[in-house]
Design a binder for these strands. Structure first.
Lengths: 191, 191
DNA sequence: TGACTAAATTAGACCGGTCGGTTTGTTCCG
DNA sequence: CGGAACAAACCGACCGGTCTAATTTAGTCA
């Protein structure tokens, strides 16, 4: 079905964009990998840029799924839920060969030359931070964090430090930076 | 002189690679910006990839200069020297329009498709971390850090968290992530 | 000090290949 | 039957790199 074609392109596009980045991945290469003709590609997507932006949307669906799953787990205290989300993300990175974060990659590559991508990626990070901040608010209520914690800032910090660790993980093909970052952040944050 | 030409290409290349990344910057565009003919480019550089790797070398000269300047300042205690280095880097970012870090950008864009770039960028980060770890060793000696601090890991963490903040700074064109990260790191690290 | 030579550097036209996107046509599905 | 989806040839533009030629620079020698 038509929707299968579009989803296949988005899924394969996510994987290939993660490894190669935006400019190194040509439309032709993606189509060769999926055995889909170019007419179909331009039927579903207005342009390559449109495709890239929709890949990000598709990616965020998965991220929000993961956030729903972890932050919604009432059997764990809030801080552990937040940490669990990142541990699951690390497992996802392992399945991909420790290539880091798609958002970080596209944001880094394109935010100097495309306002559409800069705004979209920044909005995505802000959305993730907003959801984490909500969970940190609950941690304050539960006494896990001191009452004067600026949860918005702490959530942004968590995202930022994770993205830096994700870059080094991509460079080293090793998850150690992710673990060190989580250990440091949660050790420094607990009440 | 010939060396002037090469240095001009490297300087201009640094600036343009920071904004646009590797693949979006064509050799012709760089040559148009510098009014240098293509024959000269390929006289000084074996290839575009060779050029990119030499830009990184040139960049690291500046980084080591900044490290020499800050970490060698005996009028400040060690932790403040380290922090000063990053504050100076933030000022450099301001001059560039808050476009983040060249190493982070190239590492993110190219480390999935070029072993030469992946190794070079990773080596650069390791070098910076090594020098910062030396200064953190001195902070232990001075009592600024507890004796059981793993300075190698703390130095890597500092680099990683900074790179994540640099990405967000690039996305937002705002230094707030850098400052928040430094405040958090040094507040959590002091003895 | 000037002439000469070789090497270094500059100059830019040209190349084959690939790019993103368009166009025309065919097939499928509701 | 018409619109959606698929199909693939084709296009102009641009890519990294090569090649041949011209100019400049540096070294040597009388």
């Amino acid at each position: 079905m038509a929707n299968d074609t579009k989803q296949l392109l988005l899924e394969q596009g996510m994987a290939m964009l993660l490894r190669q980045g935006y400019h190194d991945l040509g439309v032709a290469q993606l189509l060769e990998a999926t055995s889909i003709p170019k007419g179909s590609f331009y039927h579903h997507f207005k342009s390559k840029e449109d495709f890239g932006l929709q890949v990000i949307d598709r990616y965020m669906e998965e991220v929000h799924g993961g956030l729903d799953h972890c932050l919604g787990d009432q059997t764990l205290p809030p801080l552990q839920r937040v940490r669990r989300f990142f541990e699951m993300t690390e497992e996802k990175y392992r399945g991909e060969g420790y290539l880091g974060c798609l958002l970080g990659g596209l944001g880094q590559e394109l935010s100097g030359i495309s306002e559409a991508f800069r705004k979209k990626v920044e909005w995505c990070f802000s959305e993730i931070a907003r959801r984490i901040a909500c969970c940190l608010d609950e941690a304050i209520e539960r006494g896990e964090l001191s009452a004067n914690t600026d949860t918005h800032t702490m959530a942004q910090l968590l995202i930022n430090c994770w993205e830096g660790a994700a870059l080094r993980t991509r460079l080293q093909r090793d998850p150690a930076p992710l673990r060190q970052m989580l250990d440091f952040y949660f050790r420094s944050t607990s009440a």
